[in-house]
Design a protein around this nucleic acid. Sequence first.
RNA 1: GGAGAGUUGCCGGAGCGGUUGAACGGGGCGGUCUCGAAAACCGUUGUGCCCUUAUGGGUACCCAGGGUUCGAAUCCCUGACUCUCCGCCA
Length: 419
Amino acid sequence: MIDLKFIRTNPDLIRTAIQNKNEKADLDLLLGKDEERRKLQYEFDNLRARQNAVSQTIAQKKRSHEDATQELAEMADVASRIKNLQSNLAELNATVESLLLTIPNIPQADVPIGKDESFNEVIRYVGQPPTMDFVPKDHLDIATQNSFLDLPRGAKISGSGFPIYTATGAKLERAIINFMLEYHIQNHGYTELMVPLAVTRKTMTGTGQLPKLESDMYHIAEDDLFLIPTAEVPVTNIYADEVLSYKDLPKKFVAYTPCFRREAGSYGKDTRGLQRLHQFNKVEMVRFVEPENSEQALDEMLADAEDILMAFGLHYRVVSLCTGDLSFASQKTYDLEVWAAGSKKYLEVSSVSNFGEFQARRANIRYKDSEGKMRHLHTLNGSGLATPRLMIALLEQYQKADGSFQVPEVLKPFLELRI
RNA sequence: GGAGAGUUGCCGGAGCGGUUGAACGGGGCGGUCUCGAAAACCGUUGUGCCCUUAUGGGUACCCAGGGUUCGAAUCCCUGACUCUCCGCCA
């Protein structure tokens, strides 16, 4: 969340951010409630001060056996007023808090302004689309021909969007995950975590998925737990309500998890094969850094994700998301879009974002800097990478004329098999 | 799922309902001493909110939320978490 004091003193900046992000947070309501709250707080504090002082007097008089009926009478009245104020104040605080949670992060100054993805900026293209001396097939055809996937049965047991990877397909998927994990651990200095896949409402709020995106989550009502849409959620929240030392920073974690998304409202769009799923696998990188270093950390993470694509020899492009396409919590995001040689289009396989202190404020993650000052740290995360669309690109690029699949060199150590 | 114990400041650990933001010990930080260091001694040591900002002041916080009371870390209720035992189980 944004610092309430900052909002109070820079309302126009916030208003613009809300607009540019296509959000519909009610800033004026928040400001009004905040003012009301401060007034009550002041009143409450003063009344309490009175109560504390007189209570001392009462204590003293009682000890020296003096009469305190006058003080007691006054305090009975004060106490009931305090009680009233207190419940009003608690209610107001809750209101302000929940309104505050609907204010999005402010896009960084260098983020292109625009209302939707058509305003995103391609930063660069890397590599070339492969040249093939035959007409390449689409990933689903390759997968079907080689028995890598069983989508119909996945749909039978769970509904569409829940793929089954079969035999070699499963092994291939596992090899890809392992390759990426090991790459980040060994070459980029990340520490691996295995984390819970179901998290609390508070955790989901900490990273900014809630309250906005509740309808996109799988929710277990009985325990009020949510299936994670990305490892970002559990990993970023591991330090919630903690105070770290500047000596602990930066921290770099990588985690593989399945991800669950209801994808409400996106039915029928780009759904062939593995393009859009309710459950998919992803290797996620998360960093906790000092504020001064977050912009550089973003560039590094982008490079970390790109390294994977380059290792596979895939052509891709880097896109800077415009304000309207930026997620609620992000202040700057790069997407990596890999080239699918068969479908002839770019597919998003990674999103690398700097959240500034936005998530750290929500999740209450702080650190003491080298001067002993308490501050919110900055959080970042990036996919490194999500597997389904990577699988699409690999199947389509590494297919042979007969429709068989040639295992990319870098995967061979992770995949001791012949196809 | 059942039974019991616990949750206090950076850590350990006290705390008859009033002068306790919290004894005591340890740690950290600053200082004295020393050529340095150790030891000893002295001092200091949290966070949020509100008001005012040169400084300062008020208030809240002893797991969380309610309640009793003029007044609660201290009494009552509910919940969360941790530990032990039993049951169930990959």
